[in-house]
Design a binder for these strands. Sequence first.
RNA 1: CGGGAUGUAGCGCAGUUGGUAGCGCACCUGGUUUGGGACCAGGGGGUCCCAGGUUCGAGUCCUGGUAUCCCGACCA
Length: 491
Amino acid sequence: MAKELTPRHIDYAKWYNDLIIKADLAENSGVRGCMVIKPYGYAIWEKIQQELDRRFKETGHQNAYFPLFIPKSYLSKEADHVEGFAKECAVVTHYRLKNAPDGKGVIVDDEARLEEELIVRPTSETIIWDTYRNWIQSYRDLPLLINQWANVVRWEMRTRLFLRTAEFLWQEGHTAHATRDEAIAEAELMLNVYADFAERFMAIPVIKGVKSPNERFAGAEETYCIEAMMQDGKALQAGTSHFLGQNFARAFDVKFATKEGKEEYVWATSWGVSTRLIGALIMTHSDDNGLVLPPTLAPIQVVIVPIYRGREDFEKVNEVAVNIFENLKKAGIAVKYDDRDTHKPGWKFNEYELKGVPIRIAIGPKDIENNQVEIARRDTLEKVVVSQIGLTDYIRKLLEDIQETIYEKARAFRDSMVSSADTWEEFTRLLDEKGGFISAHWDGTSETEERIKELTKATIRCIPFDQKPEEGKCILTGKNSKGRVLFARAY
RNA sequence: CGGGAUGUAGCGCAGUUGGUAGCGCACCUGGUUUGGGACCAGGGGGUCCCAGGUUCGAGUCCUGGUAUCCCGACCA
């Protein structure tokens, strides 16, 4: 039937795309490079938002909202920043349309040219720091801990659903601090929030580390990141946190009076995760039958499918099913009872597997007779028959077990995808034959990193926080190195 | 922005030498079905990407646009 997914081993990219369409997460839109996030996909994003928002508030942050449009002049105030984003900015030049002279539709009114063009934000540092100038006068105003949930636009040449779209949804935190140490601590704190969220909530194991200068955010002094490993052996940056030093404070003249009455520039951070996390989620857990969702993120955690022949059967089955449904709902479990008679049970089984619903309960005449139900778990595809007595507790424990199991499975896979290379031959062979992270020595220069990228398409994903000091020779140049960094081909 | 391909029903496609548009899925109606994507019967749905041109006649040939996809350079 038409719902079959392309298996991963045949074409991983096609599998990814098929899955998104068939699980009803998102679709391409009439606008090049922009996607429509459909209700089921958006429900997953809302779960991500809710949990992250809770964690941001818990660490003292407040939400605010800054404009979509940024005056062109703002962007050019920080040299590295503008350099980093200039090539992918959408620009608003006019503010009015008029009827076309030939009567066919509308055209841009040339007389309505903006005096200063507006950039559609690719990120909000500039508009935010321009605003912070007025908010910060004294050390008493610090720290300033703000987050915003927003859309941003980066005019990408090649796009892929969730992984890289011209417009995407994200959150961006922007904080101001009195001291360098405090700002660094904030950037590290938020990276830890991301890492903990990724692992506990999304069941995605990540490696924390620092970006090399080449991969650093434009305008940052230091970029921290969490890196995840996808099933096809490619790495994916799942979140970043930046220590911005005083770069934006200087560019936007944001100073404060210290306790001692001296005037100083403030220290800044910014940090973000985006709808890209949904791409990471898909490529970490899902299989050839479709999406696999960790219970914490699943819009539907349990689905109940009744099985029956004829009306009498249905009534008996329905009574039990409704009872189970009510009990699970009362227990705070997101449960759906699918009693549609327009689709056969087999159709429903496949549909909910495609959508990654963690647990399916099937109830038929046989089960009614024996006071049991059939339970199928999505992650392992195992089916068991269990008693109707104590079912709610059983389900609750099973949800926890699924969460744990898929995380452990992903972690075991990730661990198996970290290799070491000590020679160039070994390095390139591992990249081509196995993929994954390759731990190797690097001489610390931008030129070498660039050269390795040209030769192999692999980049330094991060210098891990837990890097062990170790004398060695650079994989490419043979020059001295004091520790290994993680290379990978990446999304 | 370079290289390649493709635009025909909601989706996936076929359409011969130029002769007035079809298949599968989906959809609608009725019936039989229901423990892993049911079956039968009937039905609806088209600016054949757009604009010119050749021709008695163009989905098909020619010219020019345009859109999308794939591969490269750039990126969360």
